[in-house]
Design a protein around this nucleic acid. Structure first.
Lengths: 348, 348
DNA sequence: TTGAAAGCGCTAACAT
DNA sequence: ATGTTAGCGCTTTCAA
């Protein structure tokens, strides 16, 4: 006695009118008389009628759904992105279908196909590590499917992109330390084959240069392993210098933690003796490292911007030329009160 | 010159056959002659034909999509759940639509409606904090929509549930400490109005009782604020006892971190002098707290199990009686080598 | 072995 | 102001 989803037909039959009348009444079409309109709407709500979006989608060839392909959901940065996507999509009346590539090329291809078959109105993705063939994405573009890349994009494809400006983030973090009055700022860098690490090092260098600080190569140490023990050891080397650094800009949170450990073990104070600012995706960094300021990736915002871009594309008629915008997001410098040493005196 | 999604009709026209023949050929129906079948399949693939799932869904009133309502995506536990959901759903050929309630009742209701309208084949949800009226969920059940709760469920509703056995997890953690030879085990408890905290305290008590340990009320401290500073202060109280604890079982990772800080500041060693085991949702706990063992919630598994349950329900005919199974998942005790003091000697 | 026709639920152009 | 009809893309009975 279940399984009886109310349809427009049902309502029409009960009221002795035609389905089209019901359809019009339910969407408050001006042609329908107030009288019938009222009857229909009342019956509909008392029957708890819910329109079948599938039928609508077929009719209008529009699903009001966007597809997302993400390398790994259970990663703080990406889940923040999803959250941002959901935020904008939801308020625009869109659903979000999430798929995961798990960094596998094959799954990425499967997912694009499946999303296309579902006739999503647009797709946003961050390509997997393995991906170096872009035919599946080119297919989408050829079929006029709105496409937006976030975080990891394909340079050569003619689509919208949202990325993070790491260099600028590093620049800002370093400048912050300079403004706080630190004068010997070391950098725990990441492996230099990663673009991301290189950009951060460049930002660091640029900030030093712009502030007329001498660049001292001894203060830049690459942490190749990425363990905190490594960072701890490297920090110890730095602290053993005759002129040790009084601040450290770290490429990531693991290294920052290693540095913190080394500094504390020596009985030095953070940030009075040595300050630390590092890039971080750490959800709980404020809890764990109350003395550390950090530079965070704006995942939520990235999701929002990517979705806005996608919405714009979707709104475009199918004949109009696709837009290909690239948004470069600023990182957030999260400064904790307790990590401030001194303000630069106002210039007199 | 775009926007021409290939349909079955297109193929039929080009080959001078009927749409039904094409449909059959594409799904390898035995009635079609090998000859035409081959022609059709070849043309389809060369045209890169992709079946329109929306039309399929309408036809079969089956969307192969499941809906998820989650309080907050960017939370490690929940994103792990999503990951588990995706894992199972994907291999069963299902899509996953994610929605977020943001702990708001209103949004939860909107989301259930929207998912229902999308005619998802089933819904999984963790209710929001605000939710205390269940009409929207009852509606789903009345409409025969398969429903599975995970983590936060509604006792009174007749649906499948997947939860975590916190009491058992606490029991196991405490037992672990006992087996390692610790004999004075304190508990940093959570606010006792939360079922979850109560369950963990109960597990702790049960473990002590089963091992013939004296229950000492002085060793159970409630951390009401939930800050790590509070936990640090409370730990200090404990350590000031004439007979201080040699192990701490903590209700959560924040308290564990506070305890760790207090212990380290006194120059005591972990785990030799005082061991800590705590419940944790911490993604990076292994990195940050290499000396701490922890009890983690099996989020991924929860997602998997919930999805399996949902699939089972979906597979059920609409006439058959709905099943209402409840699965209680074991927590994971993550033991780090460095947190082991001594093994209990084998009984001679 | 293939085709014609109906229908999933809804809407919109075209009657009336 | 309301009804009729056709069609979105696909499957599936039924007929040939």
């Amino acid at each position: 006695m279940k399984k009886t989803n109310i349809t427009i037909k049902d309502i029409a039959r009960k009221l002795g009118v035609s389905p089209s009348t019901v359809s019009r009444a339910l969407k408050d079409h001006p042609d329908i008389s107030p009288q019938t309109k009222k009857e229909i709407q009342e019956l509909a709500s008392s029957l708890n009628y819910q329109p079948n979006s599938v039928a609508l989608s077929l009719r209008q060839s529009k699903t009001h759904t966007i597809g997302v392909i993400i390398p790994e959901i259970a990663h703080f940065f990406f889940s923040a992105v999803i959250s941002g996507i959901e935020d904008i999509a939801h308020s625009a009346g869109y659903h979000v279908i999430i798929t995961q590539s798990n960094e596998s090329f094959e799954r990425e291809v499967m997912n694009t196909k499946a999303l296309f078959n579902s006739r999503v109105d647009g797709i946003m993705l961050s390509i997997s590590r393995e991906t170096n063939n872009y035919q599946h994405l080119q297919n989408l573009l050829d079929n006029n499917v709105p496409l937006v890349f976030f975080d990891r994009m394909v340079e050569s494809l003619n689509a919208c992109k949202v990325i993070v400006n790491d260099e600028q983030g590093a620049y800002e973090a370093t400048t912050h330390l300079i403004e706080q009055g630190y004068y010997r700022i070391a950098h725990l860098a990441g492996p230099q084959n990663l673009g991301i690490s290189k950009n951060r090092l460049n930002g660091y260098k640029a900030a030093l240069a712009d502030n007329k600080y001498m660049m001292d190569d001894n203060l830049v140490k690459v942490c190749g392993l990425g363990t905190y023990e490594e960072a701890e050891a490297i920090t110890n080397e730095l602290l053993d210098y005759r002129f040790p650094p009084d601040a450290i800009f770290s490429n990531n949170d693991v290294a920052a933690y290693g540095a913190m450990t080394a500094i504390k073990k020596r009985g030095l104070r953070i940030p009075e003796d040595v300050a630390i600012v590092g890039f971080s995706n750490w959800r709980f960094s404020s809890l764990i490292q109350p003395a550390l300021s950090s530079v965070t990736q704006p995942g939520f915002k990235m999701g929002q911007e990517a979705t806005r871009l996608l919405m714009k594309q979707i709104a475009l008629g199918d004949d109009e030329e696709a837009i290909t915008e690239t948004i470069s997001l600023k990182t957030n410098l999260v400064v904790r009160e307790s990590s401030l040493k001194k303000k630069k005196p106002a210039v007199s």
